[in-house]
Simulated assay, not measured.
Amino acid sequence: MPSHADAFADWLFEDLELNSTLFHVGQYCGVWQASTSGHRRASFHVVLHGHCWLHLPAAATRPARSAALAAGDAVFLLTDQPHCLSPDPQPPAAGRESGRSGQMRPLDAPGHEAPDSLGLACGFFEFKSGLDDLVLGLLPDHVIARRDQPTQIGARQIFELIRAEAQLDPHAPSSLIARLTSILFIYTLRALDSNDELSPCFWALLRRPAFVPLIAAIVATPGERWTTASMADFVHMSRARFCKLFAELAGQPPAQFVTLVRMKFAASMLSTGASTPDTAEQVGYQSESAFAQAFKRVTGLQPGAWRRTAGESARGALH
């Protein structure tokens, strides 16, 4: 039976297209520091061989962090944030967290890697749906996929394919690496409910049995009148305790989560040609104008514009 994280990962990525691009692939030796920050895009690092450290300075929802990485581990940074990878377990000085030093060179042949070298594939990804803010609002700011996690058996197979592709031609990295990394990311999300390193986000709620039925109910019936009071009653908590615990776990208030779920449901309806009034009613809005304002705030488009864009994309795919 799929885990709660499996089911919610499938729901979250339904109708979404994840697009990854490869930045570079190769290896570092000696003293070096690598980073993909500063490009205003979400990014990833996949460790092909060797060991290194990920350094993240403190952020609003978490303290500074340094994490050891080994071959088969992957890091997904869901926002453009200061960070670096280096062979040093000590983080760089303040203000230098995103610095780059050393030179990446082509990968050595398998089995012939230098003892102090690190093989790395790095790139960027985005959600090609206009729902970036919605998706990112439900996820932590970074995720580390560990090769040795029991839930990552499928991910280990994807990693082996990435490593094989990386070794094909050191001068012309395979574009397939980016596509394989997109698949690896989905496996990573499915392992979030067992990830002890998870920062506050939607997935943290799935670890609390009291919240799982509520989350399932909101996703199944977004048009219900989900007020703070009704949600607190659903989980048999006082309103104050419910709001405090929800925000601590999810990193956002419950009302914001309900809005995100509703807008995702609405986007799916509009993409299939549903009218704005029907969509508004299905996601719990009595006022069409209030729905349109909320939808634009999340997606950047008015409902009608979203519907037209989806229709144009569908017609273009047929030609």
Rank of each mutant, 00 (worst) to 15 (best):
Q286L: 08
W306M: 03
Q167G: 09
A317K: 14
E160H: 13
G102E: 03
L48Q: 12
A109R: 15
A94H: 08
D88V: 09
R308F: 09
L260Q: 05
D10I: 14
P253C: 13
M269Y: 12
D196A: 12
S3Y: 01
G311N: 10
H39W: 12
H112S: 14
V219Y: 05
H51Y: 12
A164T: 07
P254E: 07
R100W: 04
A58E: 13
W32I: 05
L69W: 02
F23P: 02
S66Y: 02
Q90K: 09
I218S: 00
R207I: 04
A71E: 15
S289E: 11
G223K: 06
A59I: 10
F125C: 09
S268V: 06
I158M: 03
G311C: 11
F159K: 03
Q33G: 00
F265E: 14
A172Y: 15
K296W: 06
V298K: 04
L131P: 03
A68F: 05
P253T: 11
S174T: 00
H171V: 11
P200I: 02
A109C: 08
D196S: 12
S194N: 07
Q157L: 14
V75N: 04
S313R: 15
H45Q: 09
G284C: 04
P150H: 06
A114Y: 13
S43W: 02
S98A: 08
L206T: 11
P209L: 02
Q167L: 08
A266K: 04
G50Y: 02
A294I: 11
L18I: 12
Q167M: 03
A314Y: 10
R147Q: 14
E248H: 15
P303A: 02
G111C: 03
L120M: 01
L139W: 10
E288Y: 05
E312C: 13
M231G: 00
T309R: 15
